[in-house]
Nucleic acid binder design. Structure first.
Length: 928
RNA sequence: GGGCGGAUAGCUCAGUUGGAAGAGCGCUGCCCUUACAAGGCAGAGGUCACAGGUUCAAUCCCUGUUCCGCCUACCA
């Protein structure tokens, strides 16, 4: 039995690569429906396939790996299913940027070659994040790696689209939607980020047609859109204006006249001037008002948010303004200037407002009128609300439940079409014959993204498919039009929102729509771990789709963790340069240190402020563990005997009892997703109890050859170390495996060992009581040693005693340990028997320690300390006694509380007397 | 505008059936004591944001205020 000696310090690099490869080679993470055990499944929130691991992933994945490794060790049939997301807009943007550096564009490549190009990019960069995940030690079943655009997942997407359409839950409609003028695509409501800015509110005078000397003054934040106004609204109850309803105003900078109408929904009497311009094409509220009053819609912006020539003609705008193809900002300046010059601008004031920005590229979004595909969401949302209300899905922390419910109850239809090329193309075709009038050749519209390569001959131009066109929705391309049998079918050029496919993730990855064994075994999955930023994007939609297509919830628990910020609490971003790169950190401090740090900081309801010093601290923790193992290995040679716990030595019984408490606590905390508390408990046990006390307590036995307790102690040492490694393994997989492999063990890998289960036979409350007395006593002696400036190595004689005879007796039994840990010779005797001269006496809670004072010792520190403690004791005495003197306290507080207070008062007063006595003695010595 | 969360040691944070304030890091002092200086031992440091209320008793429960976050919303 030759055992490898461990290096003096833990070197993560030497360990991590080796084990992550070995684990994969041995297939420990591969799951199978045939395996025994209750299934436990997590699907990973798929990161962007072309992304790389950032610290947010590191947190998210570390927590999942902790759960997965824990459940695997508990014997569950565990599947952690990894994968990546095609991230339509984001990925397309990345590739377009690449093309730009080559002087190319997606339009120049055309759709087919562009999409090929994106696949190439995916092929070269797609492995990056997966390899980084493996580096983090993630115990995913990599054989089941999925990608949202895989064949199987794409099949699921088509199936869902067609079935939702057949159920009347998908429709196409021309609506005002959120449009990103840079990405040139529609966005859903939640893909718009709102940002508070101080803008300007412009007051503009619109003269009455009948009476040009009278004007209506409207207020707007977007003066350039006034060219597209088709009415002005006032409140029907507004005495200032109501007589004007039905009259007309002349729209400045145009030759048009527009009506004044009354609208109590749009107009707020209190705000601005009380008159509102209505621009149905460029404002959501105005659009609705336009529908109410059947107003014409004049769109004056292009898809790129430039002033549109056709629109301006329709608006009869003054051509001399030269606005065509001017971007919005520039157009605004021109319009404002023209209004001012011509006397229409009344005033301009600062105004706080929120502007919407594209969540992918931060460009200001525009409301844009175009035909789009929508999911009718209410029928899907209702059951998704119910399952959370009924707690069939548990959201942790629970404070997010209301947030979820509030959003779901107020949910709007989901715009799912995107005018980009990278993604799942919508499975809809149009017969070009039947829809001749509805497929419009145009250079000006939303559908302009379709182009030659992918389309039938007939469609070799840019086009718009009007709302009236009749779609043929099918899983595969229909051979011919069912009405006219034409074979000239044009596929809808749009692709689906990426989140449409990720909404299916918990079942599409398991094989749906096929009824696979995986699907039957692992659905519903157990836990979803995610950041709150995608609660609505992803979690809510998975719940809706899971209920709709699987008839059951997609997961039972949703654990929502916080965002990782920098040490100052700032959001990390590349532009701020405050990004902590997890790979760099892993290189520097070790993967286990990073994982443990993230786990220990994952307190619910709080963002994580991550500073490198924290990670360094847990690097030190890893080193501490390493050295504890090293120590153990040095002394493990020799026979080992397993005695029943009751027959073991006091230190052994104590540490087993503590270990059992720790196992219990870690398990309970993990069950309630308190990773932070589980980590703290482990840290405290290993460092503060196991290393600081247990290993010190057993040194005399281990270092004495042929010690009668040797064999049993060595057994306990190994047993507790091995158990602790298993307990810690989900948090720090690498170092625990390395140590476990080095110490005597049975089995191939710690990965597949049992997780420690609480064992009540290990509980030893008596040993724990003894220990507390021991700790208190040793602490007092050490304090006295410092006060008297005795060096740590110097052996000192000291007395110990206790007011309580039971405790006094316990001190007798602990005498050997007291002497060893205090480095001296301990004499246990009642404190009143001690010779008072030349003795520093320290007292706390009835426990007295007396240390001989040498001739040349400076007593000032000791006297100060005694004085301070006396003062503190007095304060506490008065406080407690004050309560006892309060008649109401004595009559109303529970008896045990009163008794406890009475005992405390007595102890305090006795302590005080002894302390004061000691102080007098020392002062007397000083005076000599 | 609405909703939610937070305010506890210098910093980051724990702290549930209300009953003597905790950890880590940092700081101070002493130690290279044969597992570990990435360490050991000891120590300093807190009217628990503010003001009321309930209670014998409040960091904890209630109300209000202030200051930070976040989510959400069409106030032109």
């Amino acid at each position: 039995m030759t055992r490898r000696q461990l290096d003096k310090a833990y070197d993560p690099k030497a360990v991590e690569d080796r084990w992550s490869q070995e684990w994969l080679a041995r297939g420990y993470f591969h799951a199978s429906p045939e395996q025994p055990g209750q299934p436990y499944c997590i699907v990973i929130p798929p990161p962007n396939v072309t992304g790389s691991l950032h610290v947010g992933h590191a947190l998210n994945h570390s927590l999942q790996d902790i759960l997965i490794r824990w459940r695997r060790m508990q014997g569950r049939n565990t599947l952690w299913l990894p994968g990546t997301d095609h991230a339509g807009i984001a990925t397309q943007n990345v590739v377009e940027k690449q093309l730009m550096t080559e002087g190319l564009s997606r339009e120049s490549l055309r759709r087919k070659r562009f999409v090929e190009r994106v696949w190439q990019w995916k092929a070269t960069s797609g492995g990056t994040i997966v390899n980084q995940q493996k580096q983090l030690g993630e115990s995913c079943d990599w054989d089941r790696l999925r990608f949202t655009m895989d064949e199987g997942l794409s099949k699921a997407v088509l199936e869902v689209f067609v079935r939702l359409y057949e159920d009347g839950l998908i429709y196409r409609g021309e609506r005002l939607i959120n449009w990103c003028p840079r990405c040139l695509t529609a966005l859903s409501d939640i893909e718009v980020e709102h940002e508070e800015v101080t803008g300007k509110l412009y007051h503009i005078r619109y003269p009455l047609v009948d009476d040009p000397n009278t004007s209506l003054i409207v207020a707007t934040t977007r003066p350039e859109t006034m060219l597209g106004d088709t009415a002005v609204a006032v409140h029907p109850d507004d005495p200032r204006y109501r007589h004007l309803i039905g009259k007309k105003v002349r729209l400045p900078l145009t030759t048009r006249e527009i009506p004044i109408l009354g609208d109590s929904i749009l107009v707020d009497l209190e705000f601005g001037t009380g008159a509102v311009k209505i621009t149905p094409a460029h404002d959501f509220n105005d659009f609705e008002a336009g529908e109410r009053h059947k107003l014409p819609i004049i769109s004056i912006l292009t898809a790129r948010a430039e002033m549109d020539g056709i629109g301006l003609r329709e608006a009869q705008a003054d051509a001399s303004l030269n606005l065509v193809l001017k971007p919005v900002q520039k157009a605004r300046a021109i319009v404002v200037e023209a209004l001012a010059e011509r006397g229409y601008l009344v005033k301009t004031e600062d105004h706080k407002m929120a502007i919407g920005k594209c969540y992918r590229c931060k460009t200001v979004i525009e409301p844009y009128l175009s035909p789009q595909w929508f999911v009718k969401i209410k029928p899907l949302a209702e059951p998704a609300i119910k399952v959370v209300e009924d707690r069939r899905i548990r959201i942790v922390p629970e404070s997010w439940v209301n947030n979820y419910l509030g959003w779901m109850r107020d949910i709007k239809d989901w715009c799912i079409s995107r005018q980009i090329w990278w993604g799942h193309q919508i499975p809809v075709w149009y017969c070009t014959n039947c829809n001749q009038e509805h497929i419009l050749k145009t250079g000006h519209a939303v559908g302009a993204t379709a182009e030659h390569g992918m389309l039938p001959d007939i469609a070799k131009w840019n086009f718009t498919i009007a709302q009236e066109a009749k779609p043929i929705v099918a899983r595969t391309k229909p051979a011919r039009c069912p009405v006219c049998h034409s074979q000239e079918l044009l596929r809808d050029p749009d692709v689906l929102d990426t989140w449409f496919s990720s909404a299916l993730w918990p079942f599409s990855t398991l094989g749906w729509p096929d009824q696979t064994p995986e699907l039957k075994t692992y659905y519903p999955t157990s836990t979803l771990v995610t950041g709150l930023d995608i609660l609505f994007f992803w979690v809510a939609r998975m719940i809706m789709m899971g209920l709709k297509f699987m008839g059951d919830v997609p997961f039972k628990d949703v654990y929502i963790h916080a965002l990782v910020r920098d040490a100052e609490g700032q959001k990390m971003s590349k532009s701020k340069g405050n990004v902590i790169d997890p790979l760099h950190v892993m290189e520097q401090f070790g993967t286990d240190a990073l994982r443990f740090t993230l786990a220990s900081m994952a307190s619910p309801g709080r963002d994580i402020k991550l500073a490198e010093e924290r990670i360094e601290g847990y690097r030190n923790f890893a080193n501490k563990i390493w050295n504890a193992a090293r120590f153990s290995l040095m002394y493990l040679d020799g026979p080992r005997t397993a005695l029943p716990p009751m027959q073991r030595t006091f230190p052994d019984r104590w540490i087993l009892s503590r270990l059992n408490q720790t196992i219990h606590a870690v398990t309970t905390e993990l069950e309630s997703y308190r990773f932070d508390r589980a980590a703290t408990v482990l840290y405290q046990f290993i460092w503060r109890e196991y290393c600081d006390w247990y290993l010190e307590l057993i040194k005399p036995v281990l270092q004495t050859p042929e010690h009668p307790d040797g064999a049993s102690t060595r057994h306990t040492l190994l047993e507790t170390l091995e158990t602790t490694m298993r307990l810690l393994h989900p948090f720090m997989p690498f170092i625990t495996e390395e140590i476990w492999q080095t110490i005597p063990h049975q089995g191939d890998s710690i990965v597949v060992q049992n997780y420690p289960a609480a064992n009540d036979a290990w509980d030893a409350p008596d040993a724990e009581r003894y220990f507390m007395l021991l700790e208190q006593t040793v602490g007092l002696v050490r304090t006295g040693r410092v006060l008297l400036n005795y060096p740590p190595g110097q052996q000192i004689p000291f007395h110990v005693g206790h007011d309580d005879p039971d405790r006094q007796n316990q001190l007798h039994q602990l005498q050997r340990h007291l002497a060893h840990l205090s480095r001296g010779t301990a004499e246990v005797s009642p404190s009143h028997d001690w010779q008072a001269a030349r003795l520093l006496r320290l007292v706390t809670e009835g426990l007295s320690v007396g240390i001989a004072v040498a001739d040349d010792v400076d007593l000032k520190k000791a006297i100060d300390r005694l004085a301070k403690q006396i003062t503190d004791t007095d304060k506490e005495f008065q406080r407690v006694e004050g309560k006892l003197k309060n008649a109401e306290f004595v009559s109303k507080a529970p008896p045990d509380v009163i008794t406890e207070h009475q005992e405390r008062v007595q102890t305090l007063s006795r302590d005080r007397a002894l302390l004061a006595d000691s102080e007098r003695q020392l002062r007397a010595m000083l005076a000599v």
